[in-house]
Write a protein that binds this DNA or RNA. Structure first.
Lengths: 268, 268
DNA sequence: GAACGTTGTTTCGTTTAACGGAACATCGCC
DNA sequence: GGCGATGTTCCGTTAAACGAAACAACGTTC
């Protein structure tokens, strides 16, 4: 092995997978274009990724052949195609908790008048799976696909309290970024709160994500008793107090428990 | 050039992009795994795609590095990761008609009691963008991401009537597959119906998708007057008659018109 | 209206990285 | 304990990805 080869190998290992792989560029392109708000041009992308226009063009063609992206006939620019959305929806349906929760979500909305959200824990991330709009005048827009912070949201704190222990440990080790006015930033305080949430079986997060907003979340478990997600009502602090009404707590916990039961969970 | 090389070249041209491109395999893998209901194994995939296990493994690693797929630590099998869902949701939000319609959709649901769906026309396909659940006991599950047939659904027929003329032409030339009990299969009949829909400004499709189900759809236009999608109520034929009540028609058409207005459309 | 500066696209020879066979490391099962 | 699965790694071969440069099709500018 030559010296430069050794260096190349080292660099490879060091950067933990550089853009060595060609397919990798295709994936990066797809992701970039999806996060970009407007269609992208070949030249623009070639500058962005530091490669030639020819390469970008070839990759876009590959993506277009599989209908992952499309080219606007008028502007000649490229953008993600509808297929990506359709595949994403397919993936959503994989989460059993969603099917089990839908009915209960609308019922909870009727009972509370507030918007209802369902989240799940996937790959260590809390992601909103579904939203049922509330009946209030102003609506908070926690759209499906949104990723909630672990330490500064009701969904996240429920996941910390009832999800795998490793998740909490990792979260406590990391930096607790302040995502909103009243977000928790002290690890000790977080640990204390999570413990309380585990005891009481529900969590709130007033002014943690957005000022004036609160959520009340309860855990859902699957047939093995493993954490499957969180069900929550979300709305103005005017309707969901930092110390929520006993009735609201009972409604959310009840709904979550019934979803758990649908998933085959049986309380010991 | 050898003879086999000539053949290979010919095959390449004939099949209009075979699996020549390597990135192409990555995309096919991603799509296949998403449509598959359960996680996939390397061996299984290598048989499915007719390549070596080594190749499949390398591609899966590439996908995993970008977090498009994940490997179940327990079973070692691979499945699409949550990122795909998140990207799909990003894409959905690109459709302006969705943001403009959300409020009106819940209002229409309140007024009619039926489930409300919004579709758009993307790359010649009618795709359901959003669903607002109804208040009825049994719910029809037209989930977001679903692709509706052009000729045998209310959404599709509205697209044919108010979308680009080329779409209708192409549809009339193709075969009209029967997707439900009362689906239209005769091109002449379809042409006649589409004409009527264009005149009256709305469409129904009783028993076309599913027996006992009907939908009532009206078109939405953007600021340029171009077809932007369709708004519909969907429910049992018990509630939405094949000849729907005048009030229902007025409600749906009114809602669609207000969404159009939000998009900047002004009636001449 | 001709010259220019864009854009996306194509070609082509070089070189890199994708390829598959085979060996390897685990695991579960009989 | 050996068998038959699995997923993973290695390595020499070769095919396909690469970038430079030429190209074609617009818009703009002087």
């Amino acid at each position: 092995m030559t010296l430069s080869a050794v260096h190349a190998r080292k660099r490879h290992a060091a950067l933990t997978e550089r853009s060595r792989e060609t397919a990798d560029l295709t994936l990066r392109l797809l992701e970039f274009m999806t996060l970009e708000p407007a269609p992208c041009g070949v030249t623009e992308l070639s500058q962005q990724f530091g490669t030639s226009k020819a390469t970008i063009h070839r990759h876009l063609r590959t993506l277009a052949n599989r209908e992952f992206v499309r080219q606007d006939p008028a502007t000649l620019r490229y953008e993600p195609a509808i297929k990506l959305f359709q595949l994403g929806e397919r993936l959503r349906e994989r989460f059993g908790v969603l099917g089990a929760a839908r009915e209960e979500m609308t019922r909870l909305r009727e009972a509370t008048g507030q918007a209802v959200t369902l989240s799940t824990l996937a790959e260590g991330r809390v992601v909103v799976l579904e939203l049922v709009q509330g009946h209030t005048a102003v609506e908070f827009g926690i759209r499906p696909g949104t990723q909630m912070s672990l330490h500064a949201s009701a969904h996240g704190k429920v996941a910390l309290a009832f999800g795998p222990a490793a998740l909490l440990e990792r979260c406590l080790r990391g930096k607790l970024a302040s995502t909103g006015p009243d977000a928790i930033t002290d690890p000790a305080e977080l640990k204390r709160q999570v413990e309380a949430i585990r005891q009481q079986g529900w969590a709130t997060a007033a002014n943690e994500v957005l000022f004036g907003m609160n959520a009340l979340a309860a855990p859902v478990f699957d047939h093995r008793g493993a954490f499957a997600g969180a069900l929550a009502i979300v709305g103005s602090t005017q309707f969901i107090d930092a110390r929520p009404a006993a009735k609201q707590v009972a409604l959310v916990r009840g709904a979550a428990a019934r979803v758990s039961a649908t998933l085959g969970w049986r309380p010991e």
